[in-house]
Design a protein around this nucleic acid. Structure first.
Length: 115
DNA sequence: AAATTGACGGTTA
DNA sequence: GTAACCGCCAATT
């Protein structure tokens, strides 16, 4: 009821909200011990150019919603700035890091299409 | 209202 | 392997 009313007042609301919901659901689906990149997620929710927005979306979420945000890294395997615990969380799932501090994407990146 | 910033990515060099 | 640039777009100055 409120939502229907709100859609007519603020057309952007629905699209933004759906974007967030889609991002969350993709993140939730990442298996333990695997990682996904921001760009991959952006592509999967139909906005291939907007990898930055995925980062924006995940920024304000970390603890509250039980999302495995730590399984999202950038395309080079680098972990999130200002969140050093992410490395430990991943290592606890068996994800090994290269000497330069990056996740070995060849091994741990989860390819959605690939079985 | 304009400029800057940023959990990003692809292409070069 | 790095680093500099550019494109992108919402949020913050």
């Amino acid at each position: 009821m409120f939502a229907v009313f709100y859609y007519t007042l603020v057309p952007d609301f629905m699209e933004k909200n759906n974007f967030l919901v889609d991002v969350y659901s993709v993140v939730t689906s990442i298996p333990k011990g695997k990682v996904m990149t921001y760009g991959q997620i952006a592509y999967l929710v139909g906005r291939p150019q907007n990898s930055r927005l995925v980062g924006c979306a995940l920024r304000g979420v970390s603890a509250e919603l039980h999302l495995p945000c730590h399984r999202v890294v950038n395309c080079q395997g680098r972990i999130a700035p200002g969140w050093p615990e992410q490395r430990k969380l991943l290592e606890e799932e068996g994800v090994l890091f290269k000497k330069n501090g990056c996740v070995n994407m060849k091994v741990y990146q989860w390819e959605f299409m690939n079985e």
